[in-house]
Design a protein around this nucleic acid. Sequence first.
RNA 1: GCACCGUUCGUCUAGCGGUCUAGGACGUCGCCCUUUCACGGCGAAAACACGGGUUCGAGUCCCGUACGGUGUACCA
Length: 469
Amino acid sequence: MSEKAEVVTRFAPSPTGYLHIGGARTALFNWLYARGRGGRFQLRIEDTDRARSTPEATQAIYDGLRWLGLDWDGEALSQWSRVDRHREAAEEMVARGGAYRCYASKEEVDAARARAAEEKRPQVFESPWRDADPADAPDLPHVIRLKAPREGETVVEDAVQGTVRWANAQLDDLVLLRSDGAPTYMLAVVVDDHEMGVTHVIRGDDHLTNAARQSLIYAAMGWAPPVFAHIPLIHGPDGAKLSKRHGALGVEAYRDMGYLPEALRNYLARLGWGHGDDEYFTTEQALEWFDLPGVGKAAARFDFAKLADLNGRWIRDSEDGALLAQVEALFAAQQRAPLTPSQRSMMAHAMPGLKQRAKTLIELVESAYYILVDGVPEPDEKAAKLLSPEARDILAKLTLRLQDVTEWRTAELEMVVRAFAEDAQIKLGAAAQPLRAALTGRATSPGVFDVLETLGRDESLRRLSAQAT
RNA sequence: GCACCGUUCGUCUAGCGGUCUAGGACGUCGCCCUUUCACGGCGAAAACACGGGUUCGAGUCCCGUACGGUGUACCA
């Protein structure tokens, strides 16, 4: 029905919460694989669990993907909108002899499984209705079950995991249509993937065994299965499954922590996938390089230190203007007051120095305290220590010299301060550190001479006189 | 229980039978640069889970064991 050559992937989250980091990576891999090959990347919302699905969660998924820069082709598909088609497919399988109506009650099935467990047999339910004559069927609620083969084996050629086999005796006659007529996940996924033209199913390896069951459904429908690629899960820093405390946060939480989308993409791509020794690369390069054989098989731990390092590199290499825009967007997202025109221009002026020292946007904003502060900066503990009586004395003398500076520029200011230190026979640091403390209220900052220039003559002298006494 | 998947420095990984006295990156530690902090430069410590095979030769192939993980639903 479509050109076989085109690659089509999909991301199929269930809208029961935010887009967590594992889901974001799955989406990234699908996006990279398809877009890197000129194919399509689609989004399908698996909202068939009506009780747990919410519109807010759906929106959170959209927002998360957009922030990460993962755009999908066409409209997002609601799986729920396709239930009629799923039902049809189930009936079609019954008609073809690939499925049957099972009248066993939930209790009977549970009892049979409990018995099997006791006898230490595989807990595979064998329905008495599997080969029953349809004429004997009672007029009762029933489910439709797949008539799975009892002999032989099912083989999945997984692009990441390799050849994986299951004895068919391990696979039971799974339910396709529930007694209330609702399709199960197994059925819906297969029907939708096939009809959306999905060629490559890239998903978490928690679905690996599902791939065997789904293969059986493809076979019963007479369809060719897609290429499966089951990627390992992401664990928390402690090796345990991701939990709230350990990074199973929504992607917007990463935004709020000050990470750049391009840095997160870079980090996530590197988690579980590698291209030689490349660590720091652009999305364009990832698009070009990404391939399934490069995906590892083992679960990877989420490491904030490495993310922070990568983020710092992305920040340093960002254009000043772009960074300023990111900061303003973060302020808006966090509902902080926007920058005033003067803060904005000082921030722009100081950006080359600020971005050199920040691993996250949050750190960048913190280090811009001397720009964002209202009035004279309040010295913190370390700065207060630098402002000893002797230091204030030095500052007072230095201020006198600074007042005579005609050209308020970094280079000129540095010359003046250096000359002052020499005349006073003190080390440059003895003048520069108190100067920094008075100007910024901190013991660390971008170069003091740059700070002086950023603040401008009037503001600098105001802060100095406030501390000189 | 049963089935399936996995296991190289603390972490992410390179490695696809000899070039591995196991490479890179983050982190850690030391030194240099330096007005602070970063950046940058140089250097160090740090790993093939264990046991059997196969082979002239195994981190690389096979089988066990251990330890993790996933699945085993009329959830997705």
